[in-house]
Write a protein that binds this DNA or RNA. Structure first.
Lengths: 234, 234
DNA sequence: ATTCAAATGATCGTATACAATTTGATCACG
DNA sequence: CGTGATCAAATTGTATACGATCATTTGAAT
């Protein structure tokens, strides 16, 4: 593998959870490309732990769809098919309006301030150039949706969104075209504005269209010189 | 622990998956009571495998919320709090109408036949007496919702529903009052009828109310002589 | 009799060892 | 030169071993 986050600093309690989060971040941040093999021994060496802990982390990641574990072959960063991608966005179109309505019940001024803060940060990143800024932008965009989920106070919805956002990042990494995020940012702002003016129907409507736009800006033709690669490497 | 499903017959390849499914079935079927300790050594002995495989199974079950793993203390069958229960049903109210709409897009005659078949079976169980019949009835009720999810062809939604139905079974086991299911059965029939007559809005409406009814028929006062038990045993 | 502390036993966390499977390479043969 | 078989290396699957942590009990002191 290429690189993972923060490999085993000195006084850090390197647990399964830590390894899981590190790899997860690396995948969502696109530092680990889809299809990359995650050898148990290699990962273990990076974190300076035995394969036992690594296996636990990979198993957990497999459960949330970020990693595919193939029997007797090993673990690979997931390579979502176009069909999987469609299913992920279809699920988001179902859940996110529900989250919006649930969040609206519990939202307070501090929540709104937090959301506005996220939007500002997102806007700042939209202006910058370079791969680092783009990564940060994708992450910030995901944070917006995750923050809405956290406002609901519903741990179940929150966990579902965690998974959906992470897998969406993978999909965007694979099939994303270009500067989609700038318009996405505007849409985020519109959604918050609708929430602030208590127009929930409008907010939900905007959310569904926002998800539509994200999906529409993908190029999910089976071939990116990689249909073959998927058939073989996955 | 008391008993688990089919402990290690002769030519069965006892894998992590098999153990996970066995325990999961036992929990959903209420053969394993909430709060029951699942000792790694004991479970391993039952299935005649080492703790390694058991740990994997328990970890997976923990991820889907059926088991709580407490550091250095062990794994216990989950004992969902009233708040957790509310969150589970709130999530179902969001997802299941979406599933209904998604399923309607793909539904065919064979699917409808399958649903009708489930309803017949469910009705038969409603008539019977005894704990075995009640278990089967709860399972059949869950199967109805899972079948709808499978009709969507959306693996993500399907997995979410898997988790929600399993956890709902736990909640009903804990807080369920009595003969709620008979009216639930009627509601299932009404939903299918609405689908058949292409009245999706009505079907969704019925579904939400159905979930409301399931939740309303629970007695979720913190004390069932067991708030204490939860504090200690969990 | 009650309380607290130390010892003991049980259970979990992690590492390591060995078995099983896959993969890749080498070599023989058509 | 291509094809197939055989063997070695690497990787995963599972079991076992050992250290660490927690629960419980014992026993002495108050």
């Amino acid at each position: 593998m290429t690189s993972a986050a923060a490999p085993a600093e000195d006084p850090i309690d390197v647990s399964t959870q830590y390894i899981r989060d590190s790899i997860r971040d690396a995948i969502v941040d696109r530092r680990l490309a889809p299809g990359t093999k995650l050898s148990e021994a290699d990962v273990g060496a990076l974190f300076k732990v035995s394969r036992t802990l690594v296996r636990g982390a990979l198993q957990a990641l497999s459960y949330e769809g970020l990693v595919n574990v193939e029997k007797n072959r090993g673990a690979f960063v997931a390579y979502p098919s176009p069909e999987e991608a469609r299913q992920i966005f279809a699920t988001r179109r179902v859940i996110e309006p529900g989250i919006l309505r649930e969040a609206a019940k519990h939202i307070g001024p501090s929540h709104l301030q937090h959301l506005r803060q996220l939007l500002t940060e997102e806007g700042r990143l939209t202006g910058e150039r370079g791969q680092t800024a783009r990564r940060a932008e994708i992450k910030a965009s995901g944070d917006f949706h995750l923050t809405l989920a956290s406002i609901t106070g519903n741990a179940v919805m929150q966990r579902f969104m965690d998974e959906l956002v992470a897998r969406s990042s993978l999909v965007i990494a694979l099939y994303g075209q270009s500067a989609i995020s700038s318009c996405g940012h505007q849409e985020h702002q519109d959604i918050v504005t609708a929430i602030e003016s208590d127009d929930l129907d409008r907010a939900c409507h905007l959310m569904v269209h926002h998800i539509d736009h994200i999906e529409a800006d993908l190029d999910m033709r089976e071939n990116r010189g990689s249909d073959l690669r998927e058939a073989l490497g996955l």
